[in-house]
Amino acid sequence: MLKSIFIIFLFQLIGESIQKYFEITIPGPVIGLILLLFTFILLKRSTSIFIKKTKEEISSTSTYITSYLSLLFVPIGVGVVMHLSYLEKNYIEVLGVIFFSTIFTIGFTAVLMEKINIYLKKNARKK
């Protein structure tokens, strides 16, 4: 457990350092995610027992952390509710834009992706 937490923190730390050094808008944790993913891919065929065990450990810790992903949004979410007055008189308009644009984007993206997948499957079968 402790080893895997150390590695996850370390990847975030490297990600944050890269973000600060190159001054990019992609946040450190996302860079850490990409680096950890590539490390796992690179070590895919590793036969070392140590690496295998470490990977398994990281894997179970990650499953545990990500299963509580919702909880982690609560502190910042409370801030949103407490600071709603920032929206001033524009509550309804802003909420309306958020509502319709979000729902349409979810619908558009899902239908588009499903249609492309069906199309690609048909083409693959023809070949």
């Binding site: 946040p27 950890l36 990650s62 499953t63 952390i65 982690l72 502190p75 910042i76």
Partner: peptide, 29 residues
């Protein structure tokens, strides 16, 4: 005040970063 609350709850907020890094594993699988 929210600031006082957040000062305590920031340990939970902090875990958002590591949780984002940890999303690499389900993607890898």
């Amino acid at each position: 005040s929210y600031e006082r609350y957040f000062n305590g709850a920031k340990f939970i907020h902090f875990m958002l970063g590591p949780a984002t890094v940890a999303l690499a594993i389900p993607i890898y699988k």
